[in-house]
Amino acid sequence: MRAVIQRVSNASCRVGGNITGQIETGFLVLLGIEQEDMEEDASWLAQKIAALRIFSDENGLMNKALADVNGSILLISQFTLFAQTKKGNRPSFIRAARPAQAIPLYEYMINELTKLTGKPIATGIFGADMKISLVNDGPVTIIMDTKDKDNH
């Protein structure tokens, strides 16, 4: 499971002209789910995201977490995070989980983040053609991968 976390001052998702999710201060999280991923991966990643300290404190240091700034999360499913581009010019997405596996894990991630943050999680629509708007604050962008959880 891979997440691209962007610290934002606002972000929104539109599908067919309708807003499906929007936030002010917080994280836009693009989530890619791989074939080998399981609930334990989602739990680990949700805990890391919820505790991630990338908001500035009074000294300008990245010391504050989402809860410290009353921030929110916009979670967007994005299978293209597992694009393989080694051969040719057309990416392959063979490592990305199929919807039958990915949708339950995406929903599990929503539930985990809701529990950890105590706030509803704004979302897109799984598999839809989504238009994402954001103002990346900083810019600050962090990439996390559950394959790194065993590497201390």
Score class of each variant (00 low, 15 high):
residue 1 M to H: 07
residue 1 M to S: 10
residue 5 I to T: 06
residue 5 I to H: 11
residue 9 S to M: 08
residue 10 N to E: 10
residue 11 A to G: 03
residue 13 C to Q: 06
residue 15 V to A: 12
residue 15 V to I: 08
residue 15 V to C: 12
residue 18 N to E: 08
residue 23 I to R: 07
residue 25 T to Q: 06
residue 26 G to F: 07
residue 27 F to D: 00
residue 27 F to S: 01
residue 28 L to D: 01
residue 33 I to D: 02
residue 40 E to Y: 05
residue 41 D to Q: 14
residue 43 S to M: 12
residue 44 W to I: 11
residue 44 W to K: 10
residue 45 L to Q: 10
residue 48 K to N: 09
residue 50 A to V: 02
residue 51 A to C: 03
residue 52 L to S: 04
residue 53 R to K: 15
residue 54 I to M: 06
residue 59 N to D: 11
residue 59 N to V: 01
residue 59 N to Q: 15
residue 59 N to W: 12
residue 62 M to P: 00
residue 62 M to V: 03
residue 62 M to K: 13
residue 70 N to R: 15
residue 71 G to Q: 13
residue 71 G to F: 14
residue 74 L to K: 08
residue 77 S to F: 07
residue 78 Q to V: 01
residue 80 T to M: 12
residue 83 A to F: 02
residue 84 Q to V: 02
residue 84 Q to L: 06
residue 89 N to H: 12
residue 95 R to H: 11
residue 98 R to F: 03
residue 98 R to M: 11
residue 100 A to F: 10
residue 102 A to P: 03
residue 104 P to N: 13
residue 104 P to S: 12
residue 104 P to G: 05
residue 105 L to P: 00
residue 107 E to P: 00
residue 108 Y to V: 01
residue 111 N to M: 09
residue 111 N to C: 03
residue 115 K to V: 06
residue 116 L to S: 04
residue 120 P to W: 04
residue 121 I to Y: 13
residue 123 T to K: 15
residue 124 G to W: 12
residue 124 G to A: 10
residue 126 F to K: 07
residue 126 F to L: 02
residue 127 G to P: 01
residue 130 M to E: 06
residue 131 K to Q: 11
residue 132 I to A: 09
residue 135 V to F: 05
residue 135 V to T: 13
residue 136 N to G: 01
residue 136 N to K: 04
residue 137 D to V: 03
residue 137 D to W: 06
residue 141 T to R: 08
residue 143 I to E: 13
residue 148 D to V: 01
residue 151 N to Y: 13
residue 151 N to G: 01
residue 151 N to R: 15
